[in-house]
Design a protein around this nucleic acid. Structure first.
Lengths: 179, 179
DNA sequence: GCACACATGTAAGTTGTTACATGATTAC
DNA sequence: GTAATCATGTAACAACTTACATGTGTGC
């Protein structure tokens, strides 16, 4: 139930409306745990019913501001400290690399180049965020650590994509097995 | 429907039984698209019904060997060439890094050290596989490319974890906000 | 004979996606 | 006024997890 704890953690940072949580998921959390509004709103209702969050304000356009309760804060700490992370990762993009041999060499190269263009864009965005000034409290530092993790991962992927593209464009790849 | 195409791709490599596919998912494909037997067997039945695979052999212990049909081979190629990869990635482990500030510094460091130990083990396994001799046909090369992608990703993560651990153990982290 | 790995399946429940649906405020 | 963004919800469906369930060959 990671979504539940993602919401609790985001509300432990500060109270937010459902819509603000949605935007937070689209921006920061999108690379760790994507979630859509049709998942978030019902989950907020369940968290509220369970007493882990409470609606502490009502704003314009029927927006509802939620805050974590002491129970909710205890629950997110329990989750972080006492449960093992689920280290499984599903990546459609990674899966496709196992099947590169099924494509014509030129087609394989084009696919990998599209990947490279996409992840370059992501890296640009991460680096744009990275230069923004922040505080040196633990929250700000945590965010910078998470961002550095994202950057390191994307940089590694880009370096690997360069190698992979070179390989599928190499004579040794193109020459053999013309299908 | 990545599972469907993961199965088609694995069967395009060579005919396999359901059980062999299961083992293949536990080993190679586990880091890209984990799947359990309760998902694989029903999906094989559906693929067969759709005419994308066919049962080409029956072995001991009621094992069934499946092969891709021409339609199945066309479908995996269509998927690889004509559909965009879903680049979203869900990672419980990555999500948790956003909430490091909620833990006591020592607890945060212990969690990150557990991550480091886990990924070191994965890297050891990848490197053990990497030194095994293989061919230089496209299939073998593709597998090596995928493996190198995995290794690059894990190495980047380990380097980042070293930095992250140093940061949460630094005086600047430990000193402030004693909760 | 018994344990273990092989081999396949179903069922209940949870989680996630896509589509449908509606209303409120702001900017032009 | 009208388009865009804000703001929240539900419903149908697909995908995934966990548990239940059963039978087969091999090695000791």
């Amino acid at each position: 139930m990671s979504l539940r704890h993602a919401l609790l953690g985001a509300l432990a940072d500060r109270p937010r409306t459902g819509y603000a949580l949605l935007k937070h998921f689209e921006q920061s959390l999108a690379y760790a745990w994507p979630a859509s509004h049709s998942q978030i709103y019902p989950e907020l209702a369940r968290l509220r019913e369970a007493g882990l969050i409470a609606q502490t304000d009502t704003g314009p356009r029927n927006s509802r501001t939620y805050s974590v309760t002491p129970d909710g804060r205890a629950e997110i700490r329990r989750w972080l400290g006492e449960t093992d992370p689920d280290r499984r990762v599903r990546s459609d993009a990674a899966l496709r690399t196992f099947f590169l041999w099924l494509l014509e060499p030129e087609e394989a190269a084009l696919q990998l180049e599209a990947e490279r263009a996409y992840w370059r864009g992501v890296l640009d965005e991460f680096e744009r965020i990275q230069v923004e000034p922040t505080g040196d409290d633990r929250k700000s530092r945590t965010f910078r650590i998470a961002l550095e993790g994202g950057i390191a991962g994307v940089e590694a992927r880009l370096a690997w994509l360069d190698d992979a593209i070179a390989e599928v464009r190499s004579p040794g790849w193109v020459a053999r097995e013309p299908d």
